[in-house]
Design a protein around this nucleic acid. Sequence first.
DNA 1: ATGCATTTGCGAATGATTCCCATTAAAGGA
DNA 2: TCCTTTAATGGGAATCATTCGCAAATGCAT
Lengths: 147, 147
Amino acid sequence: MSDAADVLIEHCREAGQRITGPRRIIADVVAKADDHPDVTEIYRRVAAIDPGISLSTVYRTLKVFAATGLVERHSFAGGRVRIEPASDVHHDHLIDTESGAVIEFRSEEIERLQALVARELGFELTGHRLVLYGRPLAKVERRDLKR
Amino acid sequence: MSDAADVLIEHCREAGQRITGPRRIIADVVAKADDHPDVTEIYRRVAAIDPGISLSTVYRTLKVFAATGLVERHSFAGGRVRIEPASDVHHDHLIDTESGAVIEFRSEEIERLQALVARELGFELTGHRLVLYGRPLAKVERRDLKR
DNA sequence: ATGCATTTGCGAATGATTCCCATTAAAGGA
DNA sequence: TCCTTTAATGGGAATCATTCGCAAATGCAT
């Protein structure tokens, strides 16, 4: 049981949620995940620890965790939702279109511009979702990397 | 049958696709849509013109149009795909979290920064998806709208 | 007009996610 | 520690969007 999982559990308790066996295990799996797994994959990992835990419970628990802000639910490419433990520092994602790998990044400038754009349109920015899709540059192409 | 629909049809023909009755109607409906309807909504509008057209055909045709670059398929909030006729000028979307309305916008600066960020990470930006979520500012709140 | 490959319609199939509900198990107090 | 209350669980059915399979219909080049 990792420290990060303990943090999840603790927040969960503070949110008035019961701390159950399944939730401990799901928290543990999610806390350890650094690869944005989908729900089915989380279910697999959970089932590897306790095969008795149902898919329904995984879905429900993830929803609870998400509502409490403990995990984020992304829907990158069409279809299934992918999960990542919430981190205090917000970040966006870049998807390697060749390997499917998910790279995290953060750009203060983009963040700032988004809020600005929203305000110009008459809105208070309450959230956003930015996903970049890119093809890895060959080494030779990187030579003229500016800035 | 609008001009825009004719353009769709023409491109479709150039792409080696057969121009059928259903496709004409779907092209017409899509070309007229300025509200990012989902597939079911398009089906409703199509069926209002020719009730014989099946939902499958709508799905298939939209996929063909999308593959040919004639329409874009977004998946904003969880679940269903939403359609919009492709325009030559790229834009992103802001969702009014209170009404669900979709507002289009374009920010050259954000576009530029995205490409820059991607390059810094070692990628050539091939696409992106940016959705802002915002709450409409009350009139009184807008008074100090900067810039 | 004719032949043939594409499309279509319709219903069944899929896949992800949610719902229902009887059973089980936390949490808090006696 | 032992109840009581109430939320959580398991598992299967239900839902929703989307895709498939295939026989019948229809564009389009000849």
